Simulated scan of single mutants.
Amino acid sequence: MARNQRRFHCSPEAVFEVLSDGWLYPSWVVGASRMRDVDDDWPAAGSKIQHSVGVWPALLNDTTSCEMWDPPHRMVLLARGRPIGKARVTITVTPVGSECVVSITEHAVSGPATLLPSVIEDAAFIWRNGETLHRLAYLAEGRSGRPGSTADKEQAQEQSEEEADK
């Protein structure tokens, strides 16, 4: 089972604000390219979002269901990714002072992806979910407006590199 974690410079509540807005799904999930619909009761257990994956014109319509919603601690999703199958994604948020650590675990539960050796499955999910956490951090930290966010650090790094190039 692939597992990634990252420290966020915001509260767990800020993370769950982003997760609760189904329309933001393609903003933080790698591979999701657009939203088509969000159930009125999202993210209640059993609710669904409809999204597309891929790049136009090669888009596939898919769905993700919420299996568990326990803010500000945990969310469990069942993500359908045709033609690969379904994956269970668990997002866990642990407070650390005024910040938090966000973990994502993912594993295939149906379809051809279940036939892959775990080392290959894990490598693909770890790469993808590392970027997913990066994007989620931008959104959650950006809402909190605290200094020291991922975006602040990257901007400082870019400025430092530009000055070194002069």
Rank of each mutant, 00 (worst) to 15 (best):
N61F: 05
H73D: 10
D165L: 14
E13R: 14
T105M: 13
N61E: 14
Y25M: 11
P71C: 10
R3F: 06
K48L: 11
S65E: 15
R36L: 15
L136E: 05
G46D: 07
I126K: 12
A123V: 00
R82T: 12
I120N: 08
S160P: 00
S110T: 15
Y25L: 14
A124F: 05
I49F: 01
Y138N: 11
L136V: 06
E99K: 05
S160Q: 15
L116P: 06
P71I: 10
L60V: 15
I120W: 11
P83E: 12
L77Y: 00
M75N: 03
E162S: 13
E67H: 08
E106N: 09
S149T: 10
D41P: 00
G22N: 07
S149F: 01
A137Y: 05
G85Y: 04
R88N: 06
L136G: 07
I126C: 09
Q50A: 15
R128C: 02
R74Q: 13
G31P: 14
I104F: 08
R80F: 09
D70G: 05
L59F: 09
H107A: 13
R34C: 06
R88S: 01
S160L: 12
G85N: 03
G22I: 05
V96D: 15
C10H: 03
H134F: 11
A79C: 10
G46L: 08
L78M: 09
A140N: 01
L59G: 04
P26E: 08
L139Q: 09
E121C: 07
H107C: 10
A113Y: 10
V15T: 00
R82E: 11
D62Y: 02
W56F: 14
W28N: 01
F125P: 04
P57W: 06
L59N: 11
H107K: 12
P117V: 12
A140C: 04
C100L: 02
P57Q: 01
A2W: 02
P43T: 01
V76M: 00
D62C: 15
V38S: 04
A87V: 07
S52G: 10
W127Y: 08
S11P: 08
R143V: 01
K86Y: 07
G54W: 06
C66F: 03
Q155C: 12
E131W: 08
Q5L: 05
D165W: 06
V30A: 09
